[in-house]
Amino acid sequence: MKSRFGPAVLWRTLPIALALSFLVGVGGLAIFASSLPLRDPYTQRSEDRLQPPSPTYWLGTDDLGRDVMSRVIYGGRYSLSVGLVAVGLAFAIGVPLGIVGGYAGGWTDRILMSIVEIVMAVPGILLALVMISILGPSLGNVMIAVGISQIPAYARQARGGTLTIANQEFVLAARVAGTSSIRILIRHILPNVLAPVLVVATLGLGSAILEAAALSFLGLSGDPNRPEWGSMLNMTRERFQDQPWLVLVPGFAITASVLSFNVLGDALRDWLDPKSRRS
């Protein structure tokens, strides 16, 4: 690095700044959507069908005359929260599995890791397709399916971290002092494995949003009228040649959100583990 503010620094920090501001912007708009001066995302205006972007409709209207801008902003509510819930689910199941397996070792570990391996062997989308085919199409089932397919990543990361910590002196000291296993896991192991797991979670948010959008695109998230980005693309994809804004707007929203989470995840990893920056 030549200077503190040279192009190299800019190159590293600019994407992070852009990613953060994009996510804050989209998230903020989604949260406060109902208090913004937006048209209702469900109201159909047959006289305004398929309007191109204009001062009246900034991002145009769809085939039912609904305002695309308010749909994509409200859509952030569904698409981002599907990602958050799925990652939360995977985190809540995967991390305990990983630290219990890593700490207990032996048969407990082997059985838990075999289960994880089985889930990992199934491509996420296949797992989701089978689950939704059985449980029925709905946004809730999309969240569950995406969450389950992500469990292995958390379990493995948490287990790996636990294995390196479980034999360190402070853990052994706690054991000698008669601390219960549950207390050791929660008070000593968990805080120490959390940092790398958070990297997995940030990157996982991107892939969860991507996977959920894919499932909605396949029409598996139930109500097609809901302004969810993947279903918006699905409903309008036949019109891409004549009304390209209908696919470009939701497509861009998904791509930019996923890219932003990936950029933030990479940055977080570099920050927590300077070694990976060099390789």
Partner: peptide, 24 residues
Amino acid sequence: RIAIALSSLGVSIPIFFLGILLLL
């Protein structure tokens, strides 16, 4: 840097959106 940026974009763009973009 360009290669990294391209590959970041490649893993972030939804494959179904990319397909539609190519058709466009």
